[in-house]
Design a protein around this nucleic acid. Sequence first.
DNA 1: CGGCTATACCTAGAGGCCCTAGGAAATAAC
DNA 2: GTTATTTCCTAGGGCCTCTAGGTATAGCCG
Lengths: 200, 200
Amino acid sequence: MARAGLTAARVTLAGAELADEAGFDQVTMSQVARRLGVKDASLYTHVRGLDDLRGRIALLAADEKTLRIAEAIAGLAGKDALVAFADAWREYAAAHPGRYMATQLPLKIDPALVANAPGPRRAVELTYGMLRGYGLAEPDLTDAVRLLRSTFHGFVALEAAGGFAHERSPQDSWVRALDALHTALTHWPAPREAREGDPT
Amino acid sequence: MARAGLTAARVTLAGAELADEAGFDQVTMSQVARRLGVKDASLYTHVRGLDDLRGRIALLAADEKTLRIAEAIAGLAGKDALVAFADAWREYAAAHPGRYMATQLPLKIDPALVANAPGPRRAVELTYGMLRGYGLAEPDLTDAVRLLRSTFHGFVALEAAGGFAHERSPQDSWVRALDALHTALTHWPAPREAREGDPT
DNA sequence: CGGCTATACCTAGAGGCCCTAGGAAATAAC
DNA sequence: GTTATTTCCTAGGGCCTCTAGGTATAGCCG
């Protein structure tokens, strides 16, 4: 019998495609094996198990998303960079809902694999770089990064879960949310201790 | 053999407890039945199936979370209300990680059940009420509600998934994020068409 | 080119999960 | 006290994960 020529990467990719087409919870050993024209037991040569496969899909998604963002913000600064960053994030999530869902789960995976994956770390670095223009210093910079990541992720997660039932178009709300974030970054408030009226 | 006295509510509660203790993905018919001292087939009298059970847990969580928030913001206004709202949200997610995880998934459940559950709708109403003090009008009000819900959800989701690896304490970042949101709400920007320098 | 080794893929099977069908026992109705 | 209803049960099919061990294919080396 001819070999199928599988690798961990090919198995992961098949899982990612399945996730986008049928939903992340449909990513099973059996389904992925079927899609590859192989028996499920054969996958265990390349992947430790289901958790490992799902973790690899999450890392793949993180890498891909980071790459899209990096391309999108290249050469931009200030609000243009913010909008490009956010749009790239949201578009990736919309184009690859299954892959994106994978990134929402805590990784149950070999830590060495995670350490080698550039995606998550690089994503944070990109966010820091994008914020450079707003003139923030630590620890505000970290706080701002977390605010942005939270809002971007929260918005696309709620959108994907059908959380925006109102008639108002999510796209319009998204544009306004980015306006508001830009406002928050340009008027970044001083810490509580430094504001007037506080008892030191 | 004595009956166990199950009801849909008791089954849902057992599932919610299991979700918090062992993780939402451990919520299975078998495990819940075991916890109730009953065979798994017995649960199908009270609950349609696994998706139904998980959906009920999600609705329970939404109701509980809404209740906590309502208590927290009672009698408050302005930034105090914003902070109380946000803290109640985050504390609920921290206290009930499994239940909270349930709310992140799209509901595959009988729509009639959803219609009867007060939680989700009431949560949006509370958010609108809390924002009244900022003087926004539609459609900005809806956009602001979505911004807040996105950021709150995104923050606690990232926090739960271990997304904040940096040494900076998430609590401190949370406080600053709320400061920033307050700033954004008080300086809510005019829509793009109305800003200077735009054509038209 | 023929044999050796490593390994990709297989079959077989145990155990867990979801869910249905139909039976038995406890409660409720009269 | 009898009947009707509902709860919980046993039995079983189908799909899932994962392991053990066998077979065949590919690469390597003489």
